[in-house]
Design a protein around this nucleic acid. Structure first.
Lengths: 152, 152
DNA sequence: CATTAATTTGCTTACAGCAACCATCTACCT
DNA sequence: AGGTAGATGGTTGCTGTAAGCAAATTAATG
């Protein structure tokens, strides 16, 4: 439990991070903006996924990931293989070209971070990662945050 | 200088924060989405501002803040007073109603954070704030990040 | 057959950037 | 002083990305 004014400051810092995210997005190739990039990243990390699981990992509506997946499929970076156990869904998988694009993206972000975070130590970066992960965890599924009224 | 794979993980965590930001935005009143809220917050913190300075603080294009300001002015939360030194620009200032809305917003976010971060200490929150501020600082103005090619 | 689940598509909104534009300010030149 | 060129502050039109909700489709399930 922390003091209220700290929360306000944290909220401010978090919203400022939006600008940073936009800046990072600007370093992406035009053909693969941040939404599609996130799809490639998750498929690279988790291997085969179905759409609903992907949307869950991204914490967005399935309609949103559906469009992102369409985007990357159209460019040949991901393939939708039939799911033998459920013909309603399809298994999403990186193609070799998709793996190449992922490597490209990885290289760009790494270079960008390396250039800007040259005075951070491994430990510091690791600590920030840890805290961000914990922050996400503390909020759980953001799509189910209580809205207006207190639940009283 | 940190290891490349750490950077990739940091990038992933940062993009995940987007979902959190959207969740926080969902707790805002419909009349005052996140853009306009940020305008109120900055005017509350800095007092009188001109539009260009506001856009600079928000790290967005002036056209974007211009629209946000129009939004809050239309609702009577901000007034555009003439600038005695330059008739091209106007001084932006919170109205009493705007101050009220700001209090309301502040209350909502504080309550939301209090509910979700109950197991964080002041020090931990403070540390996260510090690291986020440093992160922003390390990247400087995100709108001028080098784009594609290395500057060679 | 009724229901539920997985995905897609249509509609809407918020946010952001760029470019074109108008008004005004500033500096410089005659 | 007067006038013109360029810079600056702001607004508006257009475009694109992202996201959510609701309805429709197809298939699994009880």
């Amino acid at each position: 439990m922390a003091a209220p004014s700290l929360y306000a400051e944290l909220a401010r810092q978090l919203s400022s991070i939006g600008a940073l995210r936009r800046g990072l997005a600007r370093s992406l190739p035009v053909e693969c903006p941040s939404g599609p990039s996130a799809v490639l990243a998750l498929l690279g990390r988790h291997g085969e996924l179905r759409l609903s699981r992907l949307a869950e990992l991204l914490a967005v509506d399935t309609s949103v990931s559906s469009r992102h997946v369409t985007h990357v499929v159209e460019r040949g970076w991901v393939e939708r293989a039939p799911d033998p156990h459920d013909r309603r869904s399809r298994i999403l998988r990186l193609t070799p070209a998709g793996r190449g694009m992922l490597t490209e993206l990885h290289g760009r972000t790494t270079e960008l971070f390396a250039r800007n975070l040259h005075d951070w130590t491994d430990d510091e970066v690791g600590e920030l990662i840890t805290m961000l992960a914990r922050l996400r965890d503390s909020f759980g599924d953001c799509r189910t945050l209580p809205l207006d009224g207190p639940e009283s």
